[in-house]
Nucleic acid binder design. Structure first.
Lengths: 339, 339
DNA sequence: GCAAATTTCCAAAGCGCTTTGGAAATTATT
DNA sequence: AATAATTTCCAAAGCGCTTTGGAAATTTGC
């Protein structure tokens, strides 16, 4: 069933049917209802390719998948994509995934920009200096960045206030009397990790405390890495009395390390973890409930999708800069520093 | 730069240019070279939407992403997608991802089938009874399944011989004198896990050994789950002298559990793990090197892409049934059963 | 009641490509 | 040399939709 068939059946022109279906004003309400009803009855779905050709839009936004960086392994990325999908589905916009080996990432982006398969790209997890941004700016390919880099002025981005989040969290621990605080962070080449460390250091500096370099660690945000760093930190004397952790996955590992060391979370050692709000991981339900800096990464994905749509509608990329505040949620994993 | 411009510049018709570029025989070699050269020089890339409209092909294959089953978290899935991408990129076929909440999976598939955005779907990790298969068959949407289910006759699939792999692995352990063998398997609702358990049981039965139910465990294929099961198994007396493990991730966890229990891999306890050949995880380089049943899941993805392309070229789905044998690679993690 | 403004609809021209059905040019056959 | 077979190319018709530029029908203003 195509548009023309529908028009014939209704005794209308394809023009009118198209307009009725796409919400244009040049059609009476009565006719529109009739058309919409007939379309539903016949389960009419416009041909995506035809529409795309006619509108000059690919109807898709792209995401590059670095298969040997194994980004998709990262629950953060998956949640983000899920968020994107929630918004894009409403507008029938596809997510097209371009798996790429790390070695030809630049070529991949060039190929995507040269082609006409996607209208825009979504980038995430930017490095502190990220080559992709100047590359895409140069190629004139619209994109929205989830995160920030050093060059933030010219393109669209949405980020959470990582620096503020970790500053507040650190300040809270200081207020509880902790002075020996460890930081288990994501990989240092990522901008968000740098921001978090900056927040951590700023809060300490405000109290005149200089951080202990051995208690600042960075690595992949996995359970295992969290375990190993926490194990190492807690084996020292004196050990840190509080831990600031960059992901819930790492926090789980750190928690295991505490139990292995016979330490009680919230009493012997306090912990605040960053919570990206995974559906399968609820800090509230943990025992003890985990104190967190909270910001839904899925919600960020949804908003990035919205921004990408606005970008394609003509909004200037320079006007798209969103910095989301991060909640600090205090639960049972934080307590006063032991004497 | 569009086809027509290129044709004008070359003093040829769009027809000829199109044919030259798409490898049709009705054009002389000299002309073809000229056209190809000009296309490269101008970095001509055909408009994807126009081509799709003209050919009636969406030029994309779809994959549904169950966002709360968290399939993408699974490195297996990621490797598989990467494999798909390697093949599909050659034919400029996109991978479109449809993130879906688990509760409306059926609706998602219906929507995809009704639309014209993808030519075929790729499914993976089928359950033993998987609703998606009859659904898609009924909807007439072509698909290739990575794995098998009970109803294998009517659709295209590619699977590895999980049953044979675990039968051989078990037999090898038996040959080494092991009689107390534990199985740490993937989640029982998946068909591959059932196949592996079947192979395990068959090999034991062939020697008149009945498996110890407490030493058969199943769960998510993660490091942590592997750790927990192995820890539990090894705490028993007598403990198993060998472990058969469904993924390298789990094997890493199991390995940690062994060390934690003061046991030496390859001497006190033997282990064979299934290796899907991840780029970031080389069993050969482990200490001791891990014995594995090996089958590249990325290669499977590439082949599934190839099969999907053949399916779209008209090959009958009933003719597309591939069962890949699995290598058994013996390394240092397997040794004779301790006395 | 008539002209002007507004509403409602349509014919036709694309969007950029592929593909059918020849025609022209070249080569092979008698 | 004339005809047949083959090679090489092209004009034009789609693919299914959107959108421009009116035209016809209706409503409004005086």
């Amino acid at each position: 069933m195509k548009l023309k068939d529908l028009a014939v059946e209704l005794g209308l022109s394809p023009t009118t049917v198209s307009r009725a279906l796409n919400g244009y004003p040049e059609v009476s309400d009565a006719t529109r209802r009739r058309v919409v009803e007939a379309a539903r009855h016949h389960e009419y779905r416009p041909n995506a390719s035809a529409r795309r050709l006619a509108t000059g839009r690919a109807g898709a936004i792209g995401a590059v998948l670095q298969t040997n960086r194994n980004l998709l392994l990262d629950p953060h990325y998956v949640e983000f994509i899920a968020g994107l999908g929630e918004r894009l589905a409403d507008d029938e916009i596809d997510i097209v995934l371009s798996p790429t080996r790390g070695d030809d990432e630049t070529r991949s982006y060039r190929r995507i920009a040269a082609g006409t398969r996607v209208d825009a790209l979504v980038l995430s997890s930017p490095l502190i200096e990220d080559d992709r941004i100047p590359l895409l700016c140069g190629l004139g390919m619209p994109f929205v960045l989830h995160g920030r880099t050093s060059a933030i002025a010219k393109h669209a981005w949405l980020d959470i206030d990582n620096e503020g989040a970790f500053r507040h969290a650190t300040k809270h621990l200081l207020d509880l009397g902790h002075t020996r605080i460890g930081l288990i962070n994501g990989s240092a080449r990522y901008n968000y990790a740098a921001d978090r460390e900056r927040g951590f250091r700023a809060a300490l500096a405000a109290r005149g405390i200089s951080p202990e370099p051995r208690w600042i660690a960075e690595g992949a945000m996995t359970d295992e890495v969290g375990y190993r760093f926490a194990e190492r930190f807690l084996a020292e004397t004196p050990r840190p009395t509080a831990l600031l952790v960059s992901s819930m996955m790492m926090a789980l590992g750190a928690f295991r390390a505490m139990r292995a060391a016979g330490l009680e979370l919230g009493r012997d050692v306090s912990m605040i973890a960053h919570d990206d709000v995974f559906p399968f991981l609820n800090p509230e339900r943990m025992v003890p409930a985990m104190s967190t800096t909270r910001s839904s990464i899925r919600a960020a994905g949804t908003r990035v999708a919205e921004l990408a749509i606005e970008l394609l509608a003509g909004r200037a990329p320079e006007s798209i800069h969103e910095l989301w505040p991060v909640d600090l949620v205090i639960r049972a994993s934080t307590g006063p520093a032991p004497a």
